[in-house]
Amino acid sequence: MTAIAGPSRRGPGHRRSRRHGPARRATSPRAALAVLLTYLSLVLASAVVVVPLLAIVLTSLRTSGEMAANGNPLSPPDDWFNLHNYKVAFTDGAMLQALGNTAFILVFSLLGTVLIGSMTAYAVDRFRFRGRRLVLTLFLVAALVPGVTTQVATYQVVNQLGVMNTHWAPILLYMGTDIVSIYIFLQFIRSIPTSLDEAARIDGASPLTIYWRVILPLLKPAIATVVIVKGVAIYNDFYIPFLYMPSAELGTISTSLFRFKGPFGAHWEVVAAGAALVILPSLVVFLTLQRFIYSGLTRGSGR
């Protein structure tokens, strides 16, 4: 009995290991190759982002003599604590004034974008009116039209409004041309049950009260997403401030950095220091609040 039972217990397991062994060996190289390609792509993507930043930092710490002797942007500086270029960029480049102008434009633009975008999304989603589908279609068409093709008409409108060469010109343009924020708010509002609106309406709340007391507090993830995405875009924008605020006193950080090409056109170490001053605030804010961007976008699209 023992001799018969032994092979019967061992046989199937033994045959199973022989049957699945070649398949395991065949898939193992593919899995290893997939892991290798994944890490290789991550390394290359990181290098594309990190190498330019490293070049800017290293160049900003070098002197003009070092730049003349060796033009390699990745060469290390002789003095790692050389902050003279930052001092020149901050004082002679008026970066403090530019940072104040950028902050003023940023605050009012984001405030208007949040209010206009959330109100528009609330009206489109909660109210049924004639031409509602047409409005949504026009929003989509406006998002697909390149902004450069309408700049002539936009410039004339801004000039007629009398806000040319003021802070309000870019503020009005940033508030009125952001279709993406409307769609982000729209996705979130669609996930809010209409029963909350009905309960508030039974208690005597008006549509504006429902928006302010019920809808807007529930849009905090969407507001965080819009503020971060839109804020980074405004902070890095060069075209609108350069075109609609040509005065040097109204320059933002992007246009002030561009004006370094005049007195500091050949001094790349000073230009790199100015670029580092521009990059640092947005980089810190993005790295600190990046989880709000990803969670806000995924929550808005997944509901």
Rank of each mutant, 00 (worst) to 15 (best):
Leu111Cys: 14
Ala121Asp: 02
Arg9Pro: 05
Val270Met: 03
Leu277Ile: 13
Ala121Val: 03
Phe188Met: 05
Leu297Glu: 05
Val43Pro: 02
Thr177Arg: 07
Ala169Lys: 01
Leu106His: 09
Arg15Thr: 15
Ile184Gln: 00
Ala89His: 00
Ala94Phe: 06
Val145Pro: 03
Gly296Phe: 00
Phe90Cys: 05
Gly176Arg: 07
Ala26Pro: 00
Gly274Asp: 02
Leu257Gln: 04
Ile279Asn: 06
Pro12Thr: 05
His20Tyr: 12
Thr166Cys: 08
Ala68Thr: 11
Val141Arg: 07
Asp125Ile: 04
Leu144Thr: 13
Pro217Leu: 08
Trp80Gln: 08
Tyr294Cys: 07
Gly117Arg: 02
Ser75Ile: 10
Arg213Glu: 07
Leu250Asn: 00
Gly262Asn: 11
Tyr239Phe: 14
Tyr244Gly: 05
Leu96Ser: 12
Ala94Asp: 11
Ala89Gly: 03
Leu186Ile: 04
Tyr174Arg: 02
Arg128Asn: 11
Asn85Asp: 12
Ser109Gly: 06
Val48Leu: 12
Gln187Asp: 15
Leu144Asp: 08
Phe260Val: 01
Leu289Arg: 03
Ala153Val: 13
Asn72His: 11
Ile234Asn: 02
Ser75Ala: 15
Thr255Lys: 01
Ser301Cys: 13
Thr137Ser: 14
Gly162Glu: 07
Gly21Cys: 15
Ile192Asp: 01
Thr288Cys: 09
Leu277Cys: 04
Asp203Ala: 05
Val285Phe: 13
Phe188Val: 05
Phe139Leu: 12
Thr120Asn: 11
Thr150Asp: 07
Leu106Val: 13
Thr194Pro: 06
Leu44Pro: 06
Ile240Val: 13
Val232Glu: 03
Ala276Arg: 04
Tyr39Trp: 14
Gly13Phe: 10
Val124Pro: 00
Arg128Phe: 06
Leu61Cys: 10
Gly71Met: 11
Val135Lys: 05
Ala276Val: 07
Asp197Gly: 04
Phe104Gln: 09
Gln151Trp: 12
Thr252Val: 08
Thr298His: 09
Leu250Met: 14
Leu280Glu: 06
Val135Met: 11
Phe104Cys: 10
Ala123Asp: 04
Gly11Lys: 10
Ile210Glu: 00
Thr63Val: 10
Pro52Gly: 02
Val163Lys: 01
Lys87Trp: 10
Leu140Ser: 14
Ser46His: 06
Val51Cys: 11
Met119Leu: 14
Val285Leu: 14
Tyr244Asp: 04
Ile105Arg: 04
Gly302Phe: 12
Ser28Lys: 11
Thr137Asp: 14
Ala89Asn: 00
Tyr86Val: 09
Arg130Val: 14
Arg213Trp: 11
Gln97Lys: 13
Gly231Thr: 02
Val152Tyr: 03
Ser75Gly: 11
Leu297Pro: 02
Gly100Ile: 08
Phe185Leu: 08
Asp125Glu: 12
